[in-house]
Every structure is written in C-alpha cells, then in structure tokens.
C-alpha cells in the first residue's frame, strides 16, 4: 500500500508544491516574496529527497538533505541581511 499508493501520490503533491513555489519565484512581485519562494523551494527539496530515500530505500540521500537544510538557511539569512543593510553600504 505504501509503495503503490502513498509514495506516488506524495511525489505528485511535492512536485505540485515545487511548481507553485516556482510560480511565486517568477511572479514576485517584491524581493522578500522571491526570497520566501526560494526558502520554500529548499524545504520542498528536502521533502523530495526524503521521499526519494524511502522510495529507493537508500540512506545516502540523507546527507544531501542535511546539506540543503544548512545551505538554504544560510542563503535566506544572507539575502535578508542584504535587504536589511544593503542601502547602508551604498
């Protein structure tokens, strides 16, 4: 039941989530909106990697998920810091 029903449905839902976040990334309209879309995209990527790990029953994808979690957070913080303080440097 899990591999025949739950996993394909879950893959489809996460793929749809990717599409929705990507739409927000393209449309904007403001910079924080786009950063928020990127933030959501990296969380979706973690979800996809975890699902892929269960599907292929391989624990290898876990390290990639952990790295994406670390890098995505640092990226979001850096973008926000740029928006908050960028005009001081100019």
């Amino acid at each position: 039941m899990m591999s025949s029903v739950a996993l394909p449905v879950a893959f489809a839902l996460v793929a749809a989530a990717f599409a929705l976040s990507f739409w927000r990334l393209l449309v904007g309209p403001s910079a924080p909106d786009r950063i928020l879309a990127l933030d959501t995209l990296y969380i979706n990527a973690i979800a996809l990697l975890v699902l892929l790990g269960i599907h292929l029953s391989s624990a290898l994808y876990f390290e990639a998920a952990l790295l994406i979690a670390l890098m995505g957070f640092i990226g979001t913080v850096a973008f926000c810091k740029y928006l908050l303080r960028g005009d001081i440097i100019e």
């Binding site: 893959f11 749809a16 989530a17 959501t40």
Partner: peptide
C-alpha cells in the same frame, strides 16, 4: 508520508 506531502503542498 501522505500527511507530510499534503502539508508541504498546502504550504506552497
């Protein structure tokens, strides 16, 4: 798995 996927989808 389904709960997780549904919540991820709702967030987006």
């Amino acid at each position: 798995i389904l709960t997780g996927a549904i919540f991820t989808f709702i967030g987006s």
